[in-house]
Nucleic acid binder design. Sequence first.
DNA 1: ACCCTATGGTCCACTTTGTAGACCATTGAG
DNA 2: CTCAATGGTCTACAAAGTGGACCATAGGGT
Lengths: 143, 143
Amino acid sequence: MPSHDLPQDVSFQRQGHTELTAPPPLLTGEGGCPIRDVLDRIGDQWSLLVLAALEPETLRFNTLLRRIGDVSKQMLSRTLRRLEEDGFVHRTVYPEVPPRVEYRLTELGRSFLEPMRGLVRWADRHQAAVEAARAAYRARIGE
Amino acid sequence: MPSHDLPQDVSFQRQGHTELTAPPPLLTGEGGCPIRDVLDRIGDQWSLLVLAALEPETLRFNTLLRRIGDVSKQMLSRTLRRLEEDGFVHRTVYPEVPPRVEYRLTELGRSFLEPMRGLVRWADRHQAAVEAARAAYRARIGE
DNA sequence: ACCCTATGGTCCACTTTGTAGACCATTGAG
DNA sequence: CTCAATGGTCTACAAAGTGGACCATAGGGT
């Protein structure tokens, strides 16, 4: 049990209310929480990776499997079906033998990747800061 | 299916370096896959919700628990520790009885929520399209 | 004096979720 | 005649998450 911080500056921590210019509420209590909406769609382990993989090119099932590398067939299958269901991905079956199935992004799926770039840019820019925070944490507690 | 001379795609894999394969436009990062970086940090079920809950105000453990609603104590605890470790959240313990522990966003954590707003805006704007896609899917297949 | 509540967690048994690998039908290549 | 390759599904098994009990302590009510 790590003993974290002690109270440093109590008076400083008391926050008033955010009554005036309340920034856009990300977490809404009752009906339709936007963050939940996003999470329900792409909050699992694989959806984002699949979308990212399909971004530059249409891919077949097994290629996708190998491209991502550490996803199981079952999960890839399930993920693709959900993405198709939600309209992010289009599935084309060619009735050949052996079967050929191609997955490509829809316009909706493609449009989703746009705001994603913001997050990626963030990760890129703040990677060092996160590393530093981890090191500080280890020094403070893990050690 | 072990080592084969298959076209080994390493570009999306964990620590893979993307020097050989042409890096997909989404992956502008130079070393490691930025999408994985993001996912490793906030790709779980609860991190985003916790960050969103802490966005307007500092909160105590049990308040956070109730505010989110459907998270278990264990997962909230684990999530908070990871967020603290990564420098998204600051934890302050007041040695009172009963104990008081407050969680607040750091600057890093707050900066992260900014690109998140892009995603939320997307979800808001395309919610109808997703619903339509679902309906179409059900009509086509679920029948 | 005695209960009840409240704190921030951890621990345990149980359930849900994900994984690895076998399996399917089919065809072309060797 | 065997073997690989296709897109999946199915089935054991392993990993992750859940709900509730539990802890030490103090204050309030009766």
